[in-house]
């Protein structure tokens, strides 16, 4: 008999484990491109577990409920995203809302701790949110204009009947792919976590809270990759998803290894340019 809670728990565990292994693979690919052996593939998972049992003290400048709540909210929203995508095949608008809240969490982690590095990252996160949300929103908008629905289940049925959407809406796929690149570690758009501010908004969340953030980020990576494959490559089997996720992770690893980190202005301008080209170009393609 179908048990909804068991389905949710299985999907959350898969999201955590698969996301961690994929992020470890990303780091391995980056290292191999740079002619280094790199860490083992499970390194991300081992780090998450190691941090989980380390000490996490609360500096006197933090606002303690906020400092803890922000980390709980980050996990809550990505558990919601796993439910909306893998269990219910629900609406893309909810995913857009979750992504927006994720940006807010990045911003607020920086400001909740009272650290000067966190505050600087918080300001940079405002820039990045202003450019990444239109990028993701533009991709969903073009998808809506192509298939006239925001429901993931209906998009899957549409693709079963009409073929993969990557051919019908290639610019939407490009915008979604650039969104995935922005979420990758060491990405060209990763200025909020630049080394000049140590680790940006994550600086003051150390120890067990850092392990918790890493767990939520691995679920985020899995959900975004799953969405990309589902929305643009049609109904896939589990093997299809596994191979697709490994391929996307290898491509983002290659991109992260070979590109410099753009400063906030360049990062915002390049993302806005891609959004403009994507949306205007798709509308032009539909009219012509």
């Amino acid at each position: 008999m179908y048990n909804l809670m068991a389905d949710i728990l299985i999907n959350v565990c898969i999201a955590f484990l698969a996301g961690s292994l994929l992020l470890g693979l990303h780091r391995k690919i980056m290292a191999r491109v740079q002619s280094r052996p790199g860490p083992p593939i499970i390194q991300y998972l081992l780090h998450s577990l190691k941090f989980f049992f380390k000490e996490s003290s609360f500096p006197k400048t933090v606002s303690k409920p906020f400092y803890l709540a922000i980390v709980v909210i980050l996990c809550g929203i990505w558990v919601t995203a796993v439910i909306v995508t893998n269990v219910v095949y629900g609406s893309l608008l909810l995913i857009f809302g979750i992504y927006a809240v994720h940006k807010i969490v990045e911003h607020n982690s920086g400001s909740s701790s009272g650290s000067p590095y966190g505050k600087l990252s918080c300001v940079r996160a405002v820039y990045s949110a202003a450019s990444e949300l239109p990028l993701f929103g533009g991709s969903i908008l073009v998808l809506y204009l192509t298939v006239h629905t925001m429901d993931i289940g209906q998009i899957i049925s549409y693709q079963a009947a009409h073929g993969p959407l990557i051919f019908a809406a290639p610019l939407a796929a490009l915008m979604f792919f650039v969104t995935i690149i922005t979420k990758a570690p060491y990405s060209p758009f990763g200025i909020t976590l630049g080394k000049d501010i140590i680790s940006g908004f994550e600086t003051e969340h150390f120890g067990f809270l850092r392990g918790f953030i890493m767990i939520s980020e691995s679920m985020c990576w899995y959900v975004l990759l799953w969405l990309f494959l589902t929305l643009f490559f049609g109904p896939l089997s589990i093997i299809g998803y596994v191979i697709g996720m490994i391929v996307i992770t290898c491509i983002t690893g290659l991109i992260s290894a070979t590109t410099p980190m753009l400063n906030p202005n360049h990062s915002v301008m390049s993302q806005m340019t891609i959004t403009l080209i994507g949306v205007v170009g798709s509308i032009a393609l539909m009219i012509i």
């Binding site: 809670m5 803890l68 909210i73 996990c75 809550g76 558990v79 439910i83 392990g211």
Partner: peptide, 13 residues
């Protein structure tokens, strides 16, 4: 699921 899975991990941590 949305409320208690994160709280479970938080309290365990």
């Amino acid at each position: 699921a949305i409320i208690f899975i994160p709280f479970f991990i938080l309290s365990l941590g």
